[in-house]
């Protein structure tokens, strides 16, 4: 039987590796002529290489962050626009609706899509409390992506791209004052030791995907393709999104119970200040897609509509 290589750049105990493993444990026994095995910890390649590796069939299936390969998935990157996404469920709804409406077909032409989902909106983790966007002025922050850095610039801060494992040391040494990131990373990398303030606004978010090599998919027997189809698409994406949102809530509750971390919550006035500070980000995103061959305005408008309906 054929063994399908499932690649994750996250270490085996990481959230997404665990999620993939849970999915494999469910699907693999149902396959008749194939089996699946997880290759965690980036042993099949670094995070930015995952999209190339699955396209070339090195991995049959891979966990991919589409924004790590700047420019390859332009329409998907709409997820990064601030204000669209609070929970993963929202972002996942946006991507799957756009996919069903045919907007994303072109940029995933090389792949068979298993699931498209997103992170929750990223919060601000900082050494010193940040209540208003003006508090970020002059600060250096770890940014999750190039677009995240542009959003930070709009608030007078600068975004520094730092590899995930080195963020802790860079905050400790004051190279950056904090990070715009997910709660999952906050706990995994023990950032609460060096950045004990969490601002409860949501800035950017990241799209996420589980992609399969087209030939690998077509090579499967008809029965196995049916099994895979039954365990992929919108239903899988929503299951993962629920896992993400539950995990986020659990970390949130655990941190609040343990104490030592200051949660800075938003009221109508402070939230309005954040909304205003990132208002220009939408235009910046649209302008950034000028050469991408997509109708960026229409995609953003549709994404807003879906987000509002959630």
């Amino acid at each position: 039987a054929q063994e399908l290589r499932v690649s994750s750049f996250e270490p085996a105990p990481g959230f997404f590796s665990q999620t993939l493993q849970a999915w494999i444990d469910e699907v693999s026994p149902e396959l008749t002529d194939a089996s699946m095995r997880l290759y965690p910890g980036g042993i099949l390649g670094a995070p930015p290489a995952q999209a190339d590796l699955v396209a070339a069939g090195v991995a049959d299936i891979a966990f991919v962050v589409p924004t790590y390969t700047a420019g390859l998935f332009p329409a998907t990157s709409v997820i990064e626009v601030p204000g669209l996404i609070d929970h993963s469920a929202t972002g996942t709804e946006i991507l799957n609706t756009l996919l069903e409406e045919g907007v994303l077909t072109g940029e995933y032409a090389d792949y068979h899509i298993i699931a498209l989902f997103t992170t929750p909106g990223y919060r601000v983790f900082s050494a010193e409390p940040v209540t208003l966007p003006t508090d970020l002025e002059g600060m250096r922050m770890r940014s999750p992506s190039a677009f995240g850095a542009r959003v930070l610039e709009m608030m007078g801060a600068s975004g520094v791209p730092i590899p995930a494992p080195q963020v802790y040391e860079n905050i400790e040494r004051d190279v950056v004052s904090g990070a715009i990131w997910a709660m999952d990373a906050y706990r995994t990398f023990r950032l609460y030791e060096v950045a004990p303030n969490i601002t409860e606004t949501r800035l950017v978010a990241s799209p996420l995907a589980i992609l399969m090599n087209r030939d690998s998919y077509n090579r499967l027997s008809e029965a196995d393709r049916a099994v895979l189809d039954a365990h992929s698409g919108r239903a899988l994406a929503e299951w993962i999104a629920a896992r993400i949102d539950t995990g986020e809530a659990e970390i949130d509750a655990a941190l609040k119970q343990a104490g030592g971390v200051t949660f800075i919550s938003m009221d109508a006035q402070t939230q309005a200040a954040w909304d205003e500070a990132v208002a220009a980000a939408s235009d910046a995103w649209v302008a950034g897609q000028a050469d991408a061959g997509i109708d960026a305005d229409a995609i953003l408008a549709r994404a807003r509509e879906i987000s509002a309906a959630q």
Binding site: P48, Y68, T69, A70, G71, L72, P74, A146, A292
Partner: peptide, 10 residues
């Protein structure tokens, strides 16, 4: 000639 760029300096 593809659209892909580096993360930071583009």
């Amino acid at each position: 000639g593809g659209p892909e760029t580096t993360q930071d300096l583009m």
